[in-house]
Simulated assay, not measured.
Amino acid sequence: MAGRNKYRANNKTVTGIKRKDAVGWLIMLPTIILFAFFVWEPLLESIRLSLYTAKGIRLERFVGFENYIRVLKHPDFLAAFSNTFTYIFWSLAIGFFIPMILAVLITETTHFKSFFRVGIYFPNIMPGLATVLMWGFFFRPGSTGVLNIILGKIGIEPQVWLTNAKWTIPLIVIIMTWKGAGSTALIYMAGISNINPELYEAATIDGAGILSRIRYIILPGIFSLAKTLLILQIISVFQIIYEPLVMTNGGPNNASISIMHLVYNYAFRDFNYPMAAALSVMMGIVLIILSGLYFKITASKEA
């Protein structure tokens, strides 16, 4: 009798769990359908398109990996590939440390912390295209550029700025950093706020200055967070497109073209959708690898 009651109780528990699962799946079903329609279906269609020749978007003949080979042999691919890694280098040299420095400075500030937080986050509120157009006027070559007008007041000749191949990518990265550093700095500030206050108290008792607190308390406390944000930044920079597209159109002489910009050129300038799909698939594989690395770092941090 006791065994029968136990069986009934277990059966009710299993039935309850199944009902909860069914309700959860019903709640998620619209999202899953939309995700499959707007993400997985275009992704699978891009893979299929990359294996065919096409007239417009109408598939014609199966060619296997021929489109991938054509992409790799295209004269613009090497420039876009190397430029993308140049973007990553400068984004790490400039954009990776600035949010960290801002977060530390604001954390160590005694007064007007809220004002500084709003101030550094304000550029994130602006639409991305408006930001690019604004900085385009700022770096415009000749005597009409804002920066050249300012420099002219102190006797410096107008510079070409974005039309100088050596300066194009670093200047674009500076614009990207100005736009996104504030939000990243807020994440670092949240990480710093989670550091045990007793460590600061012990450091104060020992007479540690601000540099010692930064070196021995703050930096070790946000090290795991910095590793995660590093991978996310690399993934983001791999997908850069509208900054070089709007400001320089990939120039001068392909000095600022990125891989995603090259995808745009294949699709909307040359109307070669199979090659655009092939390069998109190649980029997708790289981003999947980077995302897997991100999840591995995140999992090790949680463990």
Rank of each mutant, 00 (worst) to 15 (best):
I217P: 00
I149L: 13
G191A: 02
S183M: 14
G191Q: 03
L287I: 10
A276Y: 00
M247F: 05
A103C: 08
I94Q: 07
G191D: 01
Y87M: 09
K18H: 11
K301A: 15
R213C: 08
G16N: 08
L29I: 09
G136E: 07
Q239K: 12
N196M: 03
N196V: 00
I195C: 00
E201K: 04
L151C: 00
I285Y: 03
R117M: 11
L29W: 09
V281T: 03
I172R: 06
R48I: 10
G209D: 10
P127K: 09
N196R: 02
P220I: 01
F77C: 04
E201G: 07
P141A: 02
T248F: 00
I125F: 13
G207A: 04
K20R: 15
M247V: 11
S183R: 13
G207N: 02
G3T: 13
R58N: 13
Y52M: 03
N253Q: 13
P244M: 04
G3S: 13
L293A: 15
I195Y: 00
E157K: 11
L129K: 10
S82D: 13
N196C: 01
I172Y: 08
L290E: 03
Y68Q: 00
D76R: 14
L211F: 14
N253G: 15
T144G: 10
K179W: 06
P42E: 02
T13P: 04
F89Q: 11
E243A: 14
I259T: 07
Y52V: 07
